[in-house]
Amino acid sequence: MNQRTARRSLVAAALAALACLQPARARAGDVEACFTASEEGQRLRDEGRLREARARFIACGAAACPALVRSDCAGWLADVTARVPTLILSAEDDQGQDAADVRVTLDGAPLAARLDGKAVEVDPGEHVLRFERAGSDPVALRLVVREGEKLRRVSARLAPPATARAGAATPGGGVTAPREDQAASPPASSLLLPIALGGVAAAGGVAYAALGLSARADADRLRATCAPRCAEADVDAVRTKVIAANVAFGVGVAALGGAVAALLLRGPMPAAPAAAAVHVVPLPGGAAAALGARF
């Protein structure tokens, strides 16, 4: 064998050795990747990022990975797959009809380009679903998704923008302004005056009855015992009760009339509150009452 032939043999042997070493190096890299995917999958699973964890467990369960790693990853993959929640998303328009041209985001990230009735996978935890459709106000729903929750139905009701709902389109293409002739309900404070006057009327009626009966009883007693020579003080006492009873009667009638007037004048239109006053003037043998009001 000459020198040239020997050199060729050495080169051929080196190339053969390199060819044998290359698969070994590739296999070593695959094994390292398997262990890395296994560790990352366990970490993501513990953080609740189940969808990402599932992808790692699929990688470490490949045929190129060692048998022990494949076995562990296969078990973890089955567990994570069972724990991944799924949602069925739907939306309705303002007429109650199903809407398919709706885009949905999950915590700001795209989740569904349109609604096709198929279940979508999400990670467990608290999320914000946002439904968006052209010509409608977006709807945001906050919900807590639980591990292992499957086929949970989540629906949104979409409505036209608020500016479109403010007025209805007319046949001529215009917009009908909201009605302004509907009065608001009167406040509860407008009932205070009628209630107060009603209470005064009731008190006046009770006082009139009590004083009148007492004065009548005293007068009957005087007629039976000393009339017509009764003491002036006793006669004045009976007369005072009669006057007081008449005054109470007048006040009660005036208050009752004021309560009725206040109820009739209570209206929804904004206006200065009516001022009502009751004037009672004692007169010999009775009293005069008058109701005055300022509008």
Rank of each mutant, 00 (worst) to 15 (best):
R4T: 12
V11L: 15
A14E: 12
A14P: 01
L18C: 02
Q22C: 07
R25W: 13
R27C: 05
D30F: 02
E32H: 00
A33R: 05
T36P: 04
T36W: 10
A37T: 01
S38L: 08
E40C: 06
E40Q: 15
G41F: 07
G41D: 12
Q42N: 10
Q42R: 12
R45Q: 02
L50K: 00
R51L: 15
R56D: 00
F57D: 03
F57G: 13
A63P: 01
A64Q: 07
L68N: 13
R70E: 05
R70V: 06
D72Y: 15
C73Y: 04
A74E: 00
L77M: 10
A78I: 11
R83A: 04
V84R: 02
E92K: 02
E92L: 13
D98C: 04
D98Y: 15
A99L: 15
A99V: 14
D101L: 12
R103C: 02
L106K: 10
A113Y: 12
D116R: 09
D116T: 10
V120C: 06
E121I: 05
E121W: 01
G125S: 13
H127K: 01
V128T: 15
R130F: 06
F131A: 06
D137M: 05
P138K: 08
P138A: 11
P138L: 03
L141P: 03
G148F: 10
E149C: 05
K150Q: 00
L151G: 02
L151H: 00
R153D: 14
A164N: 03
G167Y: 01
G167A: 08
P171T: 02
P171G: 11
G174H: 04
V175G: 03
V175Q: 00
R179H: 05
E180G: 04
E180Q: 13
A183W: 11
P186T: 06
S190M: 09
I195Y: 12
L197Y: 15
A201V: 12
A202Q: 09
V206T: 11
A210K: 10
L211I: 11
G212D: 03
G212N: 08
D220F: 14
R223D: 09
R223W: 04
A224P: 13
R229V: 09
C230W: 07
E232W: 02
E232M: 03
V238T: 04
T240V: 13
A244F: 08
N246I: 06
N246P: 03
L256M: 14
G258F: 03
L263I: 07
L264R: 15
L264K: 04
L264Y: 09
G267Q: 11
P273V: 05
A274N: 02
A274V: 15
A276N: 02
V281H: 00
P282D: 04
P282G: 01
P284G: 13
G285K: 05
L291W: 12
A293K: 06
